[in-house]
């Protein structure tokens, strides 16, 4: 409740913290950085623009909401349904579909990430045999990292398999969503997106547990890739097509590219400003 009140006062507080920031950082004293740098330090005058738009209204037409990578609609529909199960709409707010996550993933796959452009891609690659139990052993790969940043990197058989596979992320995703539909057809004689919520969840669990036969990689490797991409789409800057209207950040109470926490970080009070997107933090 108190959070909402704080919201209203925000424009004023921002001005105040700007001055503070300039003072404390020494930038007013004409430090080493020039004008262009200074300009980038603050979001553009955005408050007016954003204030008038009540949250929860329907989005304007977004011309970015078309497929650039997935060719078959049935594949994309399976992807949509699966991401929504991973990050569902609930009392906290929108789910993956409303946040634009499937389009985010589509765009990511179309780009260099989809073809593992920055990865080491020289052979020999590891051959993968679904019939070898050692290669498909289930594990806890999808668990979040024990610590972010430097402490990240919880390795496990499935992501090692994924990394050592000859296939790139595009190919793994295509096989993955098609296998979702196949499994659904086999069990329920319909496509994955048409299933009841619980049926969708059950099928995803079999992927997570490595129980589904996939040719390219163990099914849990596809699952953890899908899970990771879904979380990314929910919380990456909206410039990538997900986290629509910063709704992901709002649920997470994350201020985005907020310029400075001086004057806030040492206080006991929880700080909940309007989040700032890169569109407003970069200068154009």
């Amino acid at each position: 409740m108190a959070d909402t009140d704080k919201h209203k006062k925000e424009p004023h507080q921002t001005d105040h913290s700007r001055r503070n920031f300039l003072k404390n950082s020494g930038m007013v004293a004409g430090g080493v950085v020039g004008g262009s740098l200074l300009g980038g330090l603050f979001m553009r005058e955005r408050d007016e623009k954003h204030k008038t738009k009540p949250s929860g209204t329907k989005h304007e037409t977004s011309f970015q909401e078309a497929r650039i990578f997935f060719t078959r609609e049935e594949d994309f529909k399976a992807l949509e349904a699966a991401t929504e199960r991973i990050y569902p709409k609930d009392k906290n707010g929108p789910g993956a579909i409303e946040l634009g996550v499937p389009f985010f993933i589509d765009k990511q796959l179309a780009g260099d990430w989809g073809i593992n452009a920055r990865d080491y891609r020289k052979g020999p690659f590891k051959a993968y045999d679904y019939n070898d139990p050692a290669q498909v052993k289930s594990d806890d790969a999808a668990e979040p990292h024990p610590r972010g940043g430097q402490g990240q990197g919880k390795e496990s058989t499935d992501s090692i398999m994924r990394d050592q596979s000859l296939l790139n992320r595009r190919e793994i995703f295509i096989e993955g969503v098609r296998t979702l539909n196949d499994a659904s057809q086999k069990q329920h004689k319909t496509t994955y997106d048409q299933l009841e919520k619980d049926q969708q969840i059950d099928i995803l669990k079999t992927f997570e547990n490595g129980e589904v036969e996939m040719k390219s990689v163990p099914s849990q490797a596809f699952f953890s890739l899908l899970r990771q991409a879904t979380i990314e789409g929910a919380y990456a800057d909206p410039l990538y097509g997900g986290n629509k209207d910063m709704e992901g950040w709002k649920m997470k109470e994350f201020p985005g590219a907020y310029p400075s926490y001086l004057g806030k970080i040492d206080k006991d009070e929880f700080f909940k400003p309007q989040p700032v997107a890169l569109k407003d933090s970069q200068q154009h």
Binding site: S25, G26, M27, L41, P259, Y261, L262, I265
Partner: peptide, 17 residues
């Protein structure tokens, strides 16, 4: 310059010098 505790630090270059 002085740090403003912006939290985009580890794996980032500093925006503020």
């Amino acid at each position: 310059n002085a740090c403003v505790y912006c939290a985009f630090c580890e794996t980032y270059g500093c925006h503020f010098g």
